[in-house]
């Protein structure tokens, strides 16, 4: 048990030990199934390297190393400041696709306003991002968690070859006020994983707020046209 000795969480280990012996006693006395009194509370994980495969092989990773790179200026600017509003929102949407397809996750998150939300409901009649089942329902902090997962050295399902390709079109400005612009568009995403291709399509509805010369996303709503169909594997990142 050399590994156990190495843990720097002696307090946790002790709790576990006490609980285990109490548990054995309880198991001996109570009938099966009645023995469900709370005795072990699972706490949050400690630091990265003290658990999981990293405890056994700290430097191993099944995948290519992820180096956080900032998107080149041409992309990060995210929108042309020239031209009329139609052209500017189109440029913004194209830039967003480029960030996703080139895996500039942080730059993609940066497109969102501080209170921005990424939302993929299950059905088109859902109107609130909270309070009903969704495929994605993420504020910026949760987006940060998703990025953290996908860039972690031991994100196992990121080991196989994986890439996406987005096309955005049919861009329509639905509403423009001094504060907000609502833009509807259609997307088509191809995803390669191992040797398999998947296709996803649907509607984006961006609620944009003005940010300097460009925009910030207050809400990106994604209605997948096949959202109710059986998913063959899952979506690992934002569509």
């Amino acid at each position: 048990m050399a590994a156990a000795k190495k843990t720097r969480n002696p307090k946790g280990a002790k709790v576990a030990k006490v609980a285990a012996s109490a548990k054995r006693k309880a198991a001996a006395k109570t009938p099966a199934g009645k023995n469900l009194k709370q005795n072990v509370v699972i706490r949050a994980g400690a630091e990265t390297r003290r658990t999981g495969a990293q405890r056994i092989a700290p430097d191993h990773s099944p995948r290519a190393k992820v180096v956080a790179v900032k998107a080149p200026r041409t992309l990060a600017a995210a929108a042309s400041t020239r031209g009329d509003l139609q052209r500017r929102v189109e440029q913004f949407l194209y830039a967003q696709s480029e960030l996703l397809d080139n895996k500039y996750w942080q730059d993609y998150i940066n497109l969102f306003a501080a209170d921005g939300v990424y939302w993929m409901p299950v059905t088109t009649d859902q109107t609130e991002w909270e309070g009903s089942p969704s495929i994605f329902a993420e504020d910026k902090l949760l987006m940060q968690v998703r990025m953290g997962r996908i860039t972690h050295p031991n994100a196992w399902s990121q080991a196989p070859m994986w890439a996406t390709n987005h096309l955005v079109s049919n861009v329509v400005i639905e509403k423009e006020t001094a504060k907000e612009i609502v833009v509807r568009s259609r997307f088509h995403m191809m995803e390669l994983r191992r040797d398999n291709l998947r296709h996803f399509g649907g509607t984006y509805r961006h609620t944009l707020v003005r940010k300097g010369d460009s925009f910030a996303i207050k809400l990106q709503r994604v209605d997948m046209f096949n959202s109710q169909a059986t998913y063959d594997y899952v979506l690992q990142i934002w569509v």
């Binding site: 590994a3 156990a4 843990t7 969480n9 946790g12 280990a13 709790v15 576990a16 030990k17 609980a19 285990a20 548990k23 198991a27 099966a32 199934g33 023995n35 469900l36 709370q38 005795n39 072990v40 509370v41 699972i42 706490r43 949050a44 994980g45 400690a46 003290r50 658990t51 999981g52 405890r55």
Partner: peptide, 26 residues
């Protein structure tokens, strides 16, 4: 991402017919 030790300190109860319970409380 809890430690191996934490997960090892929970208990499973395995009933006839293959049914079972993983104890632990979140």
């Amino acid at each position: 991402a809890s430690s191996f030790e934490q997960w090892d300190s929970v208990q499973t109860i395995n009933f006839p017919r293959g049914h079972g319970v993983l104890k632990a409380y979140m």
